[in-house]
Every structure is written in C-alpha cells, then in structure tokens.
C-alpha cells in the first residue's frame, strides 16, 4: 500500500547526507519550509549545496542553516534582501560560494532537471556579464545562451494540503518554486498544513501529482519567517 506520510520532521530528513544538493522551496518567506529546515539543522548534515531563490532572512529558516555553517554553496537569483545579513557577511568573508542565476533561468533549469531535459537555450543574460563562459547559438536573428538543467538529491517543500499519495495543493503565492522542485528532487520531502484522505482533494485541483513526492510530514501551524524575524528569534 502506498502511504507517503512520515511520523516526524526528524525522520523526514534523517538520510540527508553531507555534501548533498538540496532544493528549498519558497520565495522570501512565502512557501519557505521553515520546520523542515530547522529539522535539517538539528540533523547536522553539512557541506550542502542549496538551491533557493534567496538566502533567507534574520537568523531562522534558510538563514539559520547558512549561519550554522552547513552550506558550502548557494545557487540563487537574489541573495540579498530585507533583513538578509547572514549570507552577505559570509560571502564577503569568502566563506560561502555563490552561483548567481537569473530567476527565470533558475526556474526553467529546475523544471528541465525534473523533466529529463539536460540543457536548453534562452535569451536571458545575453549581452550581460552573466553570459560569460556560456555556449552561445543563434536561432533566427537572435542569440541565445545554453543553460543546464538542475536536479537535487533532496527537495524540501511546504504546501497547504496533501494526501497519503503525495498529491499537493499550495497556498496563494507560496506555490512559487514548489511544483518544479518537487519534480527535480530525487527525494522530495513535503511539510503540509493538513493531510486529508485520498480522494478528498478534487483531482482537477491537484497542482503537484503524488508521483513527484516521496515523503509528507504534517506541520499544522507553520511559523512565519517575518514574525520570527520581527521577534528577534535565532535558531537553534
């Protein structure tokens, strides 16, 4: 019988190993799986490559993982934003590597990685410093650069509702990178605000089909990053 539910956050992330590549869903705080990230901090894996649009804020969630020294490399589009201090300090000190990727290219690289597409051409970044080192080709009268698909050993994602088969629906703009990262993770781990019996989510409304999901853990009242940052919380 298929049942992707796991009992605890700790067991959900138990096998994430040192040096793993981990995709982390979310755009800013919307969709950030804070509880899964905190479980990963407790678990102790280090030397990670993390793929996320940003680098977290304050000293909770992704920023706390970086602050704990567990992240060797970030692949992201926008590593500095409001209340983001942990990454900039480590980056300036040369203690963390950065691969800067335009946001649409990042999204498409993740989608391609999940869809079995090794590489694709795009016009984004042509004629800018971010084209350096990329193979170029002309289609019609326009130049394009070659970009490679991205996949990950693990993806950590937050959603609104799941069922035991791993079918997911999201909440508003917290959907963002979740569906693509679910496809691109070899092991996709989801925290969900509710888990309902199979059949209760209308199949017409399912956003991520369960085939892309390996584990679902219930986190009924997820914390909000902005509230934690405003309260000055630091994890652990």
């Amino acid at each position: 019988m298929i049942d992707k539910r796991v009992e605890s956050l700790a067991s959900a992330v138990a096998d994430i190993c040192d040096g793993a590549t981990v995709m982390v869903g979310g755009f800013g705080e919307a969709g950030s799986p804070i509880e899964l990230i905190h479980a990963l901090i407790d678990q102790g894996a280090t030397g990670l490559t993390v793929i996320n649009n940003n680098t977290g804020s304050g000293e909770v969630g992704l920023a706390a993982l970086i602050k704990a020294g567990r992240v060797a490399k970030m692949i992201c589009s926008y590593p500095r934003s409001l209340n983001s201090t942990v990454f900039p300090e480590l980056y300036k000190a040369g203690k963390i590597e950065l691969e800067l990727v335009p946001q649409g290219t990042l999204a498409e690289r993740i989608r391609a990685g999940g869809a079995g597409i090794p590489a694709f051409f795009t016009a984004t970044s042509v004629g800018t410093p971010l084209e350096i080192g990329k193979e170029k080709r002309t289609f019609g009268s326009r130049e394009y650069v070659l970009e490679f698909g991205l996949s990950a050993d693990f993806s950590l994602i937050k959603c609104k509702r799941a069922d035991p088969y791993g079918n997911l629906i999201y909440n508003k703009t917290a959907r963002n990178f979740g569906p693509a990262m679910a496809m691109a993770g070899k092991v996709t781990i989801v925290q969900s605000e509710s888990i309902v019996p199979a059949g209760e989510i209308d199949p017409e409304n399912i956003i991520t089909p369960g085939i892309f999901v390996n584990r679902v853990v219930l986190v009924e009242n997820p914390q909000h990053e902005s509230a934690l940052v405003a309260a000055g919380v630091s994890y652990p």
Partner: peptide
C-alpha cells in the same frame, strides 16, 4: 564589495 543580485530583471 557589491553582493550581486539579479532577480528577474534579465528575464
């Protein structure tokens, strides 16, 4: 000293 950050501008 600038931390490069591009977001969606190039797209």
């Amino acid at each position: 000293d600038a931390i490069p950050a591009v977001g969606g501008a190039m797209d």
